[in-house]
Every structure is written in C-alpha cells, then in structure tokens.
Amino acid sequence: MRRLPAFVLALLASTALHAAELRLELPGGTRQWDTAALLAHREAQPIEIPADVAYKRAMHYRAVPLASLLDGVQPGDHLQLVAKDGFAAELSAAPLLARSGARAWLAIEDPAAPWPPLGAGKPSAGPFYLVWSDPQLADIGSEQWPFQVVTIRCLDAVAQRFPALTPATDAAPAVQAGFAQFQKNCLACHRLNGAGDAQFGPDLNLPHNPTEYFAADFLARYIRDPQSLRRWPQGKMPGFSREALSDQQLGELIAYLRHMAGRKVGADQ
C-alpha cells in the first residue's frame, strides 16, 4: 500500500483541523455547508472590499453571493446571522437577496491561506464573514457585517418574537423610528427586558436603562465614542460615527430607550 508523503498528511490534518461548517436553517430546509464545499461553490469568486468594517482596510476574499445560499427565502422574510461569540445580527432578507446595488457576500476563510487576526491576541474574522460591496447604496450599517458566522436562520420578525421589545402602540413616531434603529444597531449585542437572542452585551433595560444613569448628553457621547467616557482596554462596544448613525437617528434611538425605561418587563427576574 502506497503511503502519502509526510507534508501531504500534515496538510490534510491541518485542513481537517481548521475546516468549519455553516448551518443554514431556511424555508427550503436545513443544510450544512463546510469550508471546502463553499470554496468550490459554482458562484464562488474573488472579490475586493475597499473599506472592510472588521479590518478597517481594503481586503480580498473568496466569496459566494449570499443570495445563492438562501433556498426558499423571500424578500419579505427575516434572517438572523449568529456568530461564535453570541453576536446575533438581525437582517431583513430583501438586501441579502439583491443581485445588484449593495450586494451581500459570504466570505470564506481558506484554511490554507488564513485571514489575519482582528487584533493582537484575537482570532480572524473567519470562518465565514458577511461582507458587502457598495454598502452605501442600501444604508448598510457596521452591525450588518457579522463575522465568525456559524448559523444563518430564517425567523419571524423581531417584534413578533419579542413583544417585550416593542414600544407602546401610541408611542411617538420618533420612538417607533428608534425601535428600528435599536434592531439595526443594538440588538446584535444587547437584550432589552431580557428579550433577544444576543449573548454578547448587557441588557439595556434591566435592572436600569442607560437613560436613567447617563446625565445630559453623556449617553449620546458614549454611543459616539465609548472610550471617551469609560477608558477600558477590554471594552468591545464600537463607536457609531455620524456616517453610521446620523444625529437624527441617534436621537430616535435614545427616544426609544427613554420610552422603554417606563416599560420594564421581568424586572424581578
């Protein structure tokens, strides 16, 4: 029996060690894609992302148009992308299915050519990373670039799954708009009233809402630049620039949080 050369065995062992699987739970059924299958996908191609959100520079990837993986998903559906660390991005399906304008791509980390770490002592953005070409064409925010993705699932909309997050039906338009900003920019990391799927950041209403302990304009300043108020090397919350969250949108988000301070649910849990 012919034996494989040692370097081939080492390469196979390395590939097996670092290969990853992506789980898709969609209307068309549940499927597992592994790294090799995605790298060999018929629509996989090299792409350049000029302003990558995670790496903050131009990056090149081998990627698959995410739309090609979303069997049975319709534009009106809602998807959740879950990362290894508990980050859970909530996204409407319509922009993910688009084949022109802002386009969603699933970047695939090749074990033979791993991506750089995200920082000193940190892993890479792999094994799978949702990246966008021309994101400005659809107002795609930084929280809509989840990395280290392990699961993509089709779910009911946030308001249906988590009634404890919803403002009162007669809430002001700014509050309703702020709820949309909360879903887009905050829900991937935080829960509120114990509701949400994220396992990353603290609850934003229990036991206290940030509008209850941040005075004057300090909450707005904290959202813009967390390290400017709390110098904490281990802090993971990103700042939201005016390009990512306009002053009007920031005001709407704070209006929602202030409104929800009066709608606490499960405070005794």
Rank of each mutant, 00 (worst) to 15 (best):
R62Y: 12
P127W: 07
D85P: 09
A93P: 00
S124N: 04
C189Y: 09
W115M: 00
D134W: 08
P210H: 14
L26D: 03
V73H: 00
S133E: 11
D134N: 13
V265C: 08
A107N: 01
A120S: 10
P146L: 07
S142W: 12
A98I: 12
D268T: 15
D139A: 15
F87L: 15
L165N: 02
G72R: 04
A20S: 10
L39N: 03
T166P: 00
A174I: 05
D203T: 10
Y61Q: 01
G119E: 02
D34M: 04
L250W: 04
R57Q: 13
D156T: 11
C154Q: 15
W132R: 09
Y222I: 01
Q248N: 13
A67M: 11
Q183N: 14
Q136E: 15
D134Y: 06
V158G: 00
L17V: 04
I152C: 04
Q144R: 14
R224S: 05
R62L: 13
P5G: 08
W232E: 02
F7N: 02
A63K: 00
A188C: 09
I49T: 03
G196D: 02
A20P: 01
F182Q: 01
R242H: 13
E90K: 08
A51N: 14
P210V: 13
L130E: 00
L17W: 13
S68F: 11
Q199M: 14
M59R: 06
G141H: 07
P50L: 12
S133K: 07
G262V: 07
Q234M: 05
Q32K: 11
R42S: 10
A113D: 05
P75C: 09
Q249Y: 08
M260G: 05
P202K: 11
F240R: 02
L96Q: 06
S124R: 03
P50M: 10
D139N: 15
L187C: 01
Q199Y: 09
L81H: 02
D217Y: 14
P116K: 03
L4K: 06
Q181L: 10
G266E: 02
W33I: 06
A180G: 07
T169H: 09
R62E: 13
R2L: 13
E48F: 12
H18K: 12
A83L: 03
E109C: 03
G196A: 04
K264W: 08
D85I: 12
D34A: 05
E21H: 07
R231K: 15
A6I: 15
A19Y: 06
D203M: 10
Q80K: 10
A113P: 00
P135L: 07
Y129K: 00
S228E: 01
R42W: 08
P114K: 06
Q249M: 07
L4E: 05
I152L: 13
S68G: 05
S228C: 02
T151F: 05
V158K: 03
Q45T: 13
H18W: 15
L26T: 09
Y256M: 09
V158P: 00
R31Y: 03
L106V: 02
R263Q: 11
L9V: 14
L12G: 07
A10S: 05
